[in-house]
Amino acid sequence: MIRRLFTSRESILLYVFAAMFIAFSVKVEGFFDWFSLLEISRYWVVVGMLAVPMTFIIATSGIDLSVGSIVAMSGIILGLLYSDAQVPIVVACLAAILAGALAGAFNGGVSSYLGIPPLVVTLATMALFRGLAFGLSQARSVSDFPDAFLWLSQGDAFQIPTGAGGSAYFPVPLFALATVIAVGWFLMRHSWVGRFTECLGENETAAHFAAIPVRRLKLGLYTACGAVCGIASIFNTALYSTAKADAATGMELEAIACVVVGGTRISGGRGSVLGTLLGLLIIGILRYGLKMAGMRSQHVVIIVGALLIVTAVLNERMASSGRHAWGEAK
């Protein structure tokens, strides 16, 4: 038990995060400021949401490259329904989630029932859904959303006094992110979904013979992933007050990066939602801290890329050298 505190993957990530946080706070002027830290966290919500179902999918040794495009497509559907079809905003949001789920079901159905690798399927749908977003919107953007809708991403839940007369505000969208993470964590650690998912990622044939409904499970995971993309599209649209076809471009890679840094192996078998959360925090804080330290954008991209390569290599090495310890760490 004590050993776990020092050696489990999550605690190592937590130490890395803490070390970074302290280093930035000491060395970078203006970094340690609750107001700014909470404000910047609004921009982690959408990526964080996508990273949770991505953890499951990568744990099955699959991948979903279309999540960013689904966010854009669902966002456009939300925007067009609200502004052009004059549908109530709540209904438009539900439609966005439904559209996301359908898109996810398409990914899952084609990859599991037609037996096409998810990398190929979602690479194709990445272009397809993005294309639909551009086609539906005719490349124009939709804005003029009601304030109550924008509050979802831009609103403040409560005020936090930070001393010296200053105050910070707790962002509303963090509650939504926390909910998605909590549900993901529960499913991964305390339900059959997580057990089946990891078993499937470890060895698909074995999982099949262990009477795990492999194809239905995959279909379900990709559909759920699409639905979460639909939810994320609501928050993404509210964050920028705009629904546009080029929203969330490249966000699939950011979400995958969080999962990889969080210790889920790209070859499948073990998924950790808490690890993914820590991956999100580490990448977010690293990017923010480096920018605050005055580093130019090109250099920040290089450092984050280096972090990814290092963690990916370490993940593989650690997993192959200490499979037993990994099991224990769960």
Binding site: A23, V28, G294, M295, R296
Partner: peptide, 11 residues
């Protein structure tokens, strides 16, 4: 990370 942080302000 420390390397990243410490090379930041030196620019």
């Amino acid at each position: 990370v420390i390397a990243g942080v410490s090379c930041g302000p030196s620019e």
